[in-house]
Design a protein around this nucleic acid. Structure first.
Length: 209
DNA sequence: ACTAAGATTCGC
DNA sequence: CGAATCTTAGTA
């Protein structure tokens, strides 16, 4: 399978997110997410398609559809779930549009700040879930709609080579459970707990280190 | 106005 | 396993 990935360390630009959500979600695994002075490697993502995907907000929510229509690829889509957890997504707009949910990162920089924000010490508990990483990084509603592809303190860059990416069903949804649009680094201890106890998922692609 | 459900997490 | 907690959306 042909994988499009800019040279290592480069900032991930808008063109990366001007593709289908599923492709963006898969290729974002291994990227470095920088959020101010805190940063981590993306180890788990999910894709949501704005058209026909019953699990995507756009299926039932006019405000989500308006967001897709009114924002550029690479914009942050941030929302509050269960009244207490912020979820960080990136808008993807290619032949199809949709969101990439950042579900887990491996903490790399700003660990003290992350531990302070989360109130836990365990490294593998810091960012191993979408709500956890948002809290650890300080993501909240004020970031809804910001551009993650412009020069600034928040955005993605290319990470180290990824050995393998596995895929499986998305977590915590009630509809469209059959779609295997969750992507993760097999064996990485920082993937979300929900995923750790389930089957690792089948290996999708393998890249040489 | 009132109700329901939700891309979760934590504690008992 | 159930509470916490609040926004969006559907219905009256």
């Amino acid at each position: 399978m042909e994988v499009h990935r800019p040279s290592d360390g480069a900032l991930i630009g808008r063109h990366f997110f001007e593709r289908e959500p599923v492709v963006c979600a898969r290729e974002l695994v291994g990227a470095i997410l920088r959020w101010g002075r805190r940063a981590g490697m993306v180890v788990e993502t999910e894709a949501y398609d704005a058209e026909g995907d019953e699990a995507c907000h756009t299926f039932h929510r006019p405000t989500a559809r308006a967001f897709v229509a009114g924002h550029r690829a690479g914009s942050a889509y941030v929302y509050l779930n269960y009244g207490m957890h912020w979820m960080l997504n990136v808008l993807a707009k290619g032949r199809r549009s949709g969101f990439v949910l950042i579900r887990a990162i491996e903490p790399m920089r700003g660990l003290a700040g992350m531990r302070r924000a989360r109130g836990v010490a365990s490294l593998t508990e810091l960012c191993s879930g979408p709500g956890k990483l948002a809290r650890a990084l300080g993501v909240d509603g004020s970031h809804h709609g910001i551009d993650l592809c412009s020069p600034g303190c928040r955005g993605f860059s290319v990470g180290p080579p990824v050995a393998a990416v596995a895929c499986g069903p998305r977590i915590g949804i009630s509809r469209a459970k059959e779609l295997e649009w969750r992507f993760l680094m097999p064996g990485n201890p920082h993937v979300s707990g929900a995923g750790r106890k389930e089957k690792a998922g089948r290996t999708l692609e393998v890249r040489p280190a």
